[in-house]
Design a protein around this nucleic acid. Structure first.
Lengths: 120, 120
DNA sequence: TAGGATACTATCAAAAAGGGAAGTAATGAC
DNA sequence: GTCATTACTTCCCTTTTTGATAGTATCCTA
């Protein structure tokens, strides 16, 4: 999750696919390793940076920051900074962010079925 | 898409997340760069290796093979080899594979909305 | 005046994903 | 006997993502 190289074949491929295939586009946006997990927690209401970190004990601060920035860029969360010391920053889903709940639910259902199937 | 290192922190994190979060589990399975695109084409019926390749002009044979193998491992597609020369191999979605259609549709709808939003 | 709280940022390294090009096996057509 | 066809496999390299660790700023408290 750093800068992307706009000359790589990989970049081109991603762009092309996302252009002609809305589901690929969507999965590119919510497909980061922690993205969905973060959204899951935010769906129950806004959370501070530190609270999210507690929800995801294994995430590093760097990763959490990167993912939140990406979500913010993609207008899926809003970031509100309170001018206090120590600082307080709250993250909340936007309307499009909340609209992910259907997808999340479907993924959950499908995931359950699939997991069951793989066990047998 | 090569071997994964079962000792890496990354591997551990993925495992943990997938265990406690079915939507993360699901997105890990269908989240490859070409996975959803492949499923999209297969949803209309079985296709041969070469036909898939034509559907995705930019994919390399290597990648297509890897993705299909992963899909097969995850019981999302079946692979049927016909003992002919030149060889013929057909790929078809399994029932769970077909059940992805809901998710694909959701992603498509959400993607459309999101894309619209980002333009404004 | 040293330490704590919070939300980061910076730097370096490792792992994972993806790409390019060439090679393989079997057989029928020419 | 050479070529074409098909579905791969191999090897090596680049790009992208993720992890580990160590800072930074500000003010309040003890």
């Amino acid at each position: 999750m750093t800068k992307i190289k706009e000359t790589s074949t990989n970049f081109e491929n991603k762009k092309l696919l996302a252009e002609e295939c809305l589901e690929v586009y969507a999965s590119g946006i919510i497909g980061g390793q922690w993205t969905l997990a973060i959204c899951c927690y935010l769906i129950n209401g806004k959370l501070r940076f530190g609270e999210l970190k507690k929800c995801l004990p294994a995430i590093t601060e760097r990763m959490l920051t990167l993912q939140l920035r990406k979500l913010e860029e993609n207008k899926i969360v809003t970031r509100t900074v309170f001018a206090e010391v120590p600082p307080r920053v709250e993250y909340e889903l936007t309307p499009v962010g909340y609209q992910l709940s259907t997808i999340i639910k479907n993924l959950e259902d499908w995931g359950r079925k699939h997991k069951q199937l793989m066990k047998s």
